[in-house]
Design a protein around this nucleic acid. Sequence first.
DNA 1: TTGACACGTGACCATTTGGTCACCTATCTT
DNA 2: AAGATAGGTGACCAAATGGTCACGTGTCAA
Lengths: 114, 114
Amino acid sequence: MFRALADPVRRLLLDALFQRDGRSLGELEAVVNEHVEMTRFGVAKHLRLLEQADLVVARKQGRVKVHHLNPVPIQQIHQRWIGKYTERAGVASVLLDLKHHIENPAPEPDEDES
Amino acid sequence: MFRALADPVRRLLLDALFQRDGRSLGELEAVVNEHVEMTRFGVAKHLRLLEQADLVVARKQGRVKVHHLNPVPIQQIHQRWIGKYTERAGVASVLLDLKHHIENPAPEPDEDES
DNA sequence: TTGACACGTGACCATTTGGTCACCTATCTT
DNA sequence: AAGATAGGTGACCAAATGGTCACGTGTCAA
């Protein structure tokens, strides 16, 4: 899990999926190639690692494989590991976060908010 | 930085320092050996990586090297990387954090809070 | 159906990483 | 000063990682 986040290419992949979800391997390959040179296979390998770490979920749709970002494990890291350390800095950081959220009106996921 | 977090021994080390700060190499070695077998050199190597990642600051005090946890970079990860993703889940997670902080009265660092 | 397209597999190689060891330095104690 | 204590260095080795390539499979379109 942390291991999956340890590689810059993988973080780039996550970023790309964060900007627009549901991309194919080909698209992702193109994105990566804007930054570093890498063949399709390399990208596919990284994607596979991300899947194994459960950070990305992929399903086959015809002949393309569509990749989706999975926010759950990141939340978990945030809550059970990072949070533990940020506590030490007191409530300040959380308030700071809240302020941030208020000022940037929430790009909420397409779910039904009651 | 992420790389430094990618190893379980290193996370264990951070945990140990989190529980009690300012430990020597020998102490840390003992802690690690409660979980896995590893020589002093192995532990020292991990410690050095953590220092390079700026997650741990060490200073020599006589003949012992005292290691201290550095919360800053973890905060940074939290704010500039994790936060970016958790935003997607809306304000909820932050409020949840806030609730958590309120209920667990803040073990604040020994700094002057005005 | 034939071929182009999107992707997967297993073998393979170079580099990095995790870990150990023999030896050395610096400090404290007596 | 002498020995014990705490730690550092560089060489070294095994294993994991990152990356590529030659092939093979399934899918769409003409």
